[in-house]
Amino acid sequence: MAEPFKNLINADVVRQAGQHLGQALQATLPDDFHHAADVLEASFKSVTHVEDPDKELGLLRTDDTGLADWLERHASRTLIKQGHGRTLTLWGLGTAFDGNVRWQVSPKRIAIGESVALNLALASTSASTQALEIDYTVHHARAQGGASAKTFKGWRMSLAPGETLSLAKLHSMRPVTTRRYHPGEHQIDLRINGQIVAQAGFKLTA
């Protein structure tokens, strides 16, 4: 087993997560890195849902190897998407975006199975380079009313002083085995470094 894996398995983050995590990591490393990281993330979820996330974050960054850094970033995905302040600060994302945002979702009406286009224009007004973690949260209409929110990864980048940038992607509303869609209004929040900076929406039809 490679030394970085030994260091990770012996780290406090694994011991705090519980013996079951250590066994899972031992069983999967070094053959399946992604699965190991998912196990690590699941462990963080199980602990931070019942305890203070700040306590768990104190165990991060205990190994300065590139592999450990990747695993820690992978395991931090949920807290980053939730906009957890200390997690964002830990990864250099604790500062609000300094600039102008234009966020568009089109078309305004689609049928289940189709896609909406997400278009983002950024213009920095900062005097320094900004590290940006850009996510978006879709508020899916529920069959019984109300909405269910799910956050998706968007872009990760650096924006130079005065720089302008246009970004675009498609978001599919095609049903999959793990997600069903229902007709109704859908709102999409744009999040930059954990903060909601713009909102737009569309109507989904049967």
Rank of each mutant, 00 (worst) to 15 (best):
V101W: 04
W70F: 14
V47I: 13
Q26H: 09
S124P: 02
A121Y: 07
R102P: 03
G94P: 08
S148K: 02
D64Y: 10
G83T: 13
H140W: 03
T95D: 11
V39C: 12
K81P: 00
A42D: 11
F97Q: 04
Q19D: 14
W103P: 00
P53V: 04
L40I: 06
L90M: 14
S46M: 07
F97P: 05
W103E: 03
I80A: 11
A24K: 12
T62W: 07
I80L: 15
L88T: 06
D31L: 09
S115D: 15
S115L: 02
V39L: 11
G83K: 10
R86Q: 13
R109T: 08
D63K: 11
T48R: 04
I134N: 00
P53E: 02
H34M: 08
E41A: 13
E51P: 04
D69G: 06
L132R: 01
E41Q: 12
L79S: 04
P107G: 03
E41H: 05
T95K: 09
T137D: 03
D32W: 05
S115C: 09
L25W: 01
Q19N: 12
S126V: 03
T28R: 14
Q104W: 00
W155S: 02
A147V: 15
Q16S: 12
L120R: 03
L132P: 00
Q19H: 13
W91Q: 01
E51S: 14
E72W: 13
S76A: 15
D135S: 05
Q144D: 15
S43A: 15
A42C: 06
A42V: 00
R142N: 13
L21H: 04
P30H: 07
L29P: 03
K45V: 07
T87A: 15
D63P: 11
T89W: 06
L40A: 08
K55V: 15
A24M: 06
D63F: 07
H74M: 13
W155V: 04
D32M: 05
N119L: 08
A96W: 02
E72P: 01
K45G: 00
I80D: 03
Q23I: 03
S128L: 10
L120N: 07
R86P: 07
R109E: 11
R61G: 06
R109N: 08
H84Q: 11
R77C: 12
A37P: 03
T48V: 12
G146D: 04
L60F: 15
R77Y: 08
Q16Y: 12
K55R: 15
G146E: 04
G154E: 11
D98F: 01
S128H: 09
T151P: 05
D98Q: 14
W155C: 05
P53W: 01
A27W: 01
G83C: 14
L59S: 10
Q16M: 10
K55Y: 11
V116R: 01
Q23H: 00
H140F: 14
A141C: 05
P107S: 02
